[in-house]
Design a binder for these strands. Structure first.
Lengths: 194, 194, 194, 194
DNA sequence: AATGAATGAGAGTTCATTCAT
DNA sequence: AATGAATGAACTCTCATTCAT
């Protein structure tokens, strides 16, 4: 079903991927509360019943979306370089985030909607927290190493610094791109050794 | 209908205040997407139709909520001291925020729900941005003065620093209270002159 | 809507009565499995949402129907004479049933549909069994007294006889009326003293 | 698809038999109204589409079920002894019914569901009435002969007596087994010569 | 200012059935 | 003979809003 000749047929997981993608687009536009099964189906170009064939109900849909987002973030993470001076790694991490913001703004909007909902929805929380945690851990790690190498201030609290960084990054999500450079260099100054 | 005696107290704007208050409680519990006119009316102890007499539709309700929140934030702001060494003002500002988080967590939840929605809803954005801006300006101002007095690093970008501070504060909203102290001192270290 | 002065408003329980009545008619026609909320609403001449205002969901609707039927059967029972020779009472009971079958065939159809469903549905069982039991007890009682008075065979098992009578009566529900007389006299012969 | 070896066994009518059997089991559990094509297919271990290949639609399915039930009842009937004193035949007939009730309660539940539906559904009525009639005729016949031999009361109405017997039997379907003996002997006493 | 009742529009979900392979 | 995927039609239920009083 997946091979060359017959590929005009969107079978199995492809449909689920299409659905996830359409749903994400809609969430980015109208938020979680504006998400309608019918609209997703329309966007994919299938019947609502067909949609329910692939994704049985709204809860499963949300899980699918969260997973789909998770995979993407994971792929991004896997692609990051992990060696070099901590300060550079820190900047690279921010740079990467900034680019994601520009190239796929949808991703961050959906991420933020899911995190918002995670506060109330156990299922989503279970799927999403690992991703938030991984990100946080990554920064913590960088700070810890950087303190040793002397890249970052001695006495810096790596956990708190990681939180500040993430907060700044997320809070910046809606802002114009130009400001991001200023934010980045200010974060660097905030933590590096003077 | 039940307490005959009090009935004349609760006319006009009092009702609107009750409605706003009930709505805020519900938003804090279930988020915007879980807000139901009927539940608000029930919480106030009136009929849905009566509710619509006071607040004609959901848009007006949202405006009411935003205004109510705005008034509260404004009152908070007005109560803040505005003189003294910038570093102290900065700490006082954060301290005040931390206490608000503990005493009225509902307020911050609603604020965050409204800001989320502001991204999509023009009306809300118009009401909310001033409040976010005022807060941002306040920090910017403190940083500007602090740079002059030597409390904060020379070369500090006041605007970026204000953004980082706000991001950190908002991002911390759900976290346990104990961590807040660490965050606060880390923020101070991030910006003050070493 | 029907009468002259103020009664044109079908308020409160009247609506529930109308709904119960329409639902019973529909069950008699198409059985339980063919019962549709929309059709009931249409039959009453109201919107589906209005129907749900009065009867929140299908389970409540079924309870309403069962109760409505129960009330009717109860009224019937209350109207029956309870004194006189047991044999006469027995015949009167059957006669009354036969007339109900002719005048309100719907009632018995609905009763039988409800009893069928009672086998699977706990809620219905709880409402309906009392009525079946009362009827059964009534016959048992008549037989017990009749044995003493010598109207019925000595050695007759009153409980088994009651079951036979009810089985015969219910089983006859769809049959042509004329046959009922034969059935009745055969039942009398089956149990009376020879 | 999974057990390659057996695949050629289960062609044609075997499939139909499997489907009928699965459907009957499901009807016994959840009633007619709870019968779902998908569940039948699942129970048989085939795809819904495959099911529709063998049994084109729900009407055909019901016919199939009725026929399958009919065959079973017919086999039962054929196995019954048809000679001996009428009173004994009568008791044997009841005894056989009682045993069927215990050994294959499913059969009687399905029979009763089908008879209920026969009241509304012409197709089912056409298939089922013969079976009900045959049973009824069998009792009538036994009574007619028994009157001649003196086993049963002179003046007994064979048709009405047959109806009473069947009503009692069917009505007893859900009741505990122990009571059946009492019912049986009471029926015997009701019709035999004293 | 308040209410019970009503409503239209739509939401998610289910189901028998069909299509392409 | 069998399948995965697709579909239209329907169903129950919900919700913001309105109407008559």
């Amino acid at each position: 079903m997946k091979q060359v000749i017959k590929q005009h047929y969107e079978a199995g997981d492809d449909r689920r991927r299409q659905i996830a993608s359409a749903a994400r687009k809609l969430i980015a536009e109208k938020g979680f509360e504006g998400l309608r099964t019918r609209e997703i189906a329309d966007a994919v170009g299938i019947n609502v019943a067909t949609m329910h064939y692939h994704v049985p109900n709204k809860e499963a849909l949300i899980v699918l979306i969260a997973e789909s987002l998770g995979e993407e973030l994971e792929a991004d993470r896997a692609a990051m370089r992990r060696d070099g001076p901590p300060l550079e790694l820190f900047e690279a991490e921010l740079e990467n985030y900034g680019q994601r913001l520009q190239k796929r703004p949808e991703t961050m909007k959906v991420f933020s909607e899911l995190m918002q909902r995670a506060g109330r929805d156990e299922t989503i929380r279970r799927i999403m927290t690992p991703f938030a945690d991984q990100w946080h851990n990554r920064f913590t790690e960088i700070f810890e190493q950087g303190i040793k190498t002397g890249d970052f201030r001695p006495g810096l609290n790596p956990v708190a610094a990681a939180s500040i960084t993430m907060g700044a990054a997320i809070h910046h999500r809606h802002k114009p791109k130009q400001e991001f450079a200023a934010l980045k260099s200010e974060l660097v100054n905030a933590f590096r050794k003077h």
